[in-house]
Computed example of a mutant assay.
Amino acid sequence: MLNALEVFTTVVVGVMVGVEFSVAFVMNPIFNGLSDDSNQQARSHGGRMLGAVMPFWYIGSLVLAAVWAITGWGHRGTGLVVTAAALLIVSVVMSLLLLVPINNRGKTWTPETRPADWKEQMKRWDRYHYVRVAIIIGAFALLAAALV
């Protein structure tokens, strides 16, 4: 049972990392190459779509890591899992305090209603997102290391 939890948790976090990595290094650069209206509309749509899913994914990943740490307490690799869970906590707090407020504004914008500084706000979101991606990559690497 513990082995299944370990693998499932690692896969869930790994797929989340893949999605967030793709947003940072594939999708947003593609959007930035579009006209301002198309870029902003794509980011707004992405903010609505991923904004509806990612809270469950981040919290679910954290819960899975915590359950793994508790269930596997005393087993080899538990320290790595606890550290990964701590990094996932940082990613959730960072999301709530820094990224979600920008996303909540951005997902309502249209070409007619976006503020004059919308590009600066998106650049700020991107910078925070790069840091968050690094944090969750670290958590994923720790979980993967705890498997072996």
Score class of each variant (00 low, 15 high):
Val93Asn: 09
Gly47Tyr: 02
Val131Ala: 15
Arg43Val: 03
Trp109Met: 05
Glu6Tyr: 09
Ile70Thr: 11
Asp37Trp: 07
Ala4Asn: 05
Gly138Gln: 03
Leu2Met: 14
Met1Leu: 12
Val93Lys: 00
Ile137Phe: 15
Ala4Glu: 03
Met122Lys: 02
Trp57Val: 15
Asn3Arg: 08
Met27Ile: 13
Arg114Gln: 03
Ala85Leu: 13
Asn3Thr: 14
Ala86Leu: 12
Arg127Ile: 01
Val23Met: 09
Arg43Asp: 04
Asn103Gln: 11
Val7Lys: 01
Ala66Pro: 01
Met49Ser: 10
Asn103Met: 06
Val81Ser: 02
Val92Lys: 00
Ile30Asp: 10
Gln40Trp: 05
Val131Cys: 07
Gly14Trp: 02
Tyr58Arg: 08
Phe56Gln: 05
Tyr128Asp: 10
Phe8Thr: 11
Val81Glu: 02
His45Asn: 10
Met54Trp: 08
Met1Arg: 04
Gly33Ile: 06
Asp126Cys: 04
Ile137Asp: 01
Pro55Val: 12
Pro29Val: 07
Pro55Cys: 08
Ser35Arg: 06
Ile136Val: 14
Leu80Ala: 15
Ser91Pro: 04
His75Arg: 07
Leu142Gln: 01
Gly72Arg: 01
Val81Gln: 01
Tyr130Asp: 15
Ser95Ile: 05
Asp37Pro: 13
Arg124Leu: 13
Asn3Ser: 14
Ala145Phe: 08
